[in-house]
Design a protein around this nucleic acid. Structure first.
Length: 428
RNA sequence: GGAGAGGUGGCAGAGCGGCUGAAUGCAGCGGUCUUGAAAACCGCCGUGCCGAGAGGCACCGGGGGUUCGAAUCCCCCCCUCUCCGCCA
């Protein structure tokens, strides 16, 4: 949610932001919001003065003798009816304004690159060499199926496409990377959180997945709950409605959860393997802090580094990209993606996404803090980034570390998490 | 799932149709005192919206309703607690 005052003062900036994000239909939203805002503010003074009159008269009434009341009552009743009508108008205006305002996209930072989609994201840096194999490398699903670790066919039979069974050592590896990631973040002072996986609309709207993302979420209509697509949703919402003490900031959380995504509209895309699946697990870092763009920027760099450290520990080549306007979501101001090299795609594939929101989510969540300097209340800034998402990361691990004989070498960092094992699978 | 009790400012906790945006305590801020700190004492101290300002309006879990007037009465929902039932 944008500050309505900001929209009033900078309509062109907001529109330009929507254009940069390639959301042409949202440009018109700015004008609609402004028009409703004008209408509402024209109405308010009338309502307020009527209410003031009503209140004064009401107070006087209390002091009046019973027989004096009669003549005042008639006037009061008339006023009441008139007021009622205006209040209905006000309520309707506010509802429409709210509905439109939720559609306004956050304004992208000036340093967000221009571009229409992910092909125009700007590479920031590459780390680690793309390996040269002395043999023809196999795709992860081949490596996995040959070892009996993966089964997509049986999973599809009972759960539909984009589902998977992980067996044996691969299931353990899945566990190991998540555990490693949680440990890594815990060591940096992030508090581990095991959040609710089913949440009310409040949290979905608050983190700005709704409105707009309804088609991507599984919904339990009976209970009006939604399965989360990422721990960002419940973890960023932890302090929803609260006024935090500045002394308690920043809040650093590392959420660990299953994630569910319908992947509607992706038919025919990434259909093989573990890349795009309905259900996965993720360890996610979330920071809530004071409303200071400079502080947010520092946190952003910090959470990207945290993720990079994990990838370096996993000995995976990757690159960091600055996401361009057209690939940026509605709520973000700036976003880095981290992509790991995936031989089967012969390209880097997205494994991490680090977002900076400023107070966009906090406004929707009514997430505030009291400033030490002046005792005033302000909306927080929020950020989040993946630490590790599995099984997607298993693609890179299996493909990069596969050996000619069909086994998979474990990076040293993961060995302790696999009970000392250094190689997975048997030679084939 | 059934029966009861309750949700009030950062926290605790009064109020239960008009004089209550809300007593009181704690915390916070400013001051007096002190070499300094503590204690004591004095003052200030909710949030949002509109307005250049004076000021006005809204908000006592959320939404409806009754009433000239609702934190206070009624209905629905959400949450917390207690008892019963069921259950990993």
């Amino acid at each position: 949610m944008l500050d309505i005052k900001f929209v009033r003062d900078n309509p062109d900036l907001v529109k330009a932001g929507a254009v940069k994000k390639r959301l042409p239909d949202r440009v018109a939203v700015v004008d609609r919001v402004l028009a409703l805002d004008v209408e509402l503010r024209a109405l308010l003074p009338r309502i307020e003065s009527m209410r003031a009159e009503q209140r004064q008269a009401g107070k006087a009434m209390g002091r009046l003798a019973a027989e004096e009341r009669e003549c005042h009552l008639a006037a009061q009743k008339r006023l009441k009816e008139e007021l009622q009508q205006l209040e209905d108008q006000e309520k309707d205006l506010r509802a429409r304004l709210e509905r439109e305002a939720l559609l306004l996209p956050n304004v992208p930072a000036p340093e967000v690159p221009e571009g229409k989609d992910d092909t125009e994201n700007q590479e920031v840096r590459r780390v680690g060499a793309v390996p040269a194999f002395g043999f023809t490398p196999r795709a992860h699903y081949e490596v996995g199926e040959r070892q009996g670790w993966l089964d997509f066919e049986r999973a599809a039979n009972l759960a539909g496409s984009r589902n998977y069974f992980l067996f044996g050592e691969l299931a353990w590896l899945h566990d190991a990377v998540l555990r490693f990631a949680a440990d890594h973040m815990s060591g940096k002072g992030f508090t581990l959180v095991d959040p609710p996986l089913l949440v009310r609309d409040l949290a979905m709207v608050g983190t700005a997945f709704f409105p707009g993302g309804e088609e991507q979420a599984y919904r339990c209509e009976k209970d009006e709950l939604n399965l989360i697509g990422t721990a960002e949703v419940p973890v960023t919402s932890i302090h929803q409605g609260e006024i935090l003490d500045e002394a308690d900031l920043p809040k650093r959380y590392v959420g660990r959860s299953a994630c569910f995504r319908r992947e509607a509209g992706t038919y025919g895309k990434d259909t093989r393997g573990l890349y795009r699946v309905h259900q996965f697990h993720k360890v996610e870092q979330v920071i809530v802090d004071v409303a200071d763009p400079e502080v947010s920027r520092r946190h952003h760099e910090e959470i990207v580094r945290n993720a990079e450290e994990v990838l370096q520990a996993f000995e995976l080549p990757y690159r960091v990209v600055a996401v361009c306007g057209g690939d940026l979501g509605v709520p973000q101001i700036f976003k880095y993606d981290i992509e790991c090299w995936m031989p089967s795609r012969n390209h880097y594939g997205e494994t991490h996404s680090a977002s900076r929101f400023h107070d966009f989510q906090a406004r929707r969540l009514n997430l505030r803090y009291r400033r030490k300097a002046d005792g005033k209340v302000a909306f927080c800034h929020t950020l989040n980034n993946t630490v590790i998402a599995s099984p997607r990361i298993l693609i890179a691990l299996l493909e990069i570390h596969q050996q000619a004989d069909g086994t998979v070498r474990l990076p040293k960092a993961l060995v302790p998490y696999m009970r000392g094992k250094e190689v997975l699978g048997r030679p084939l």
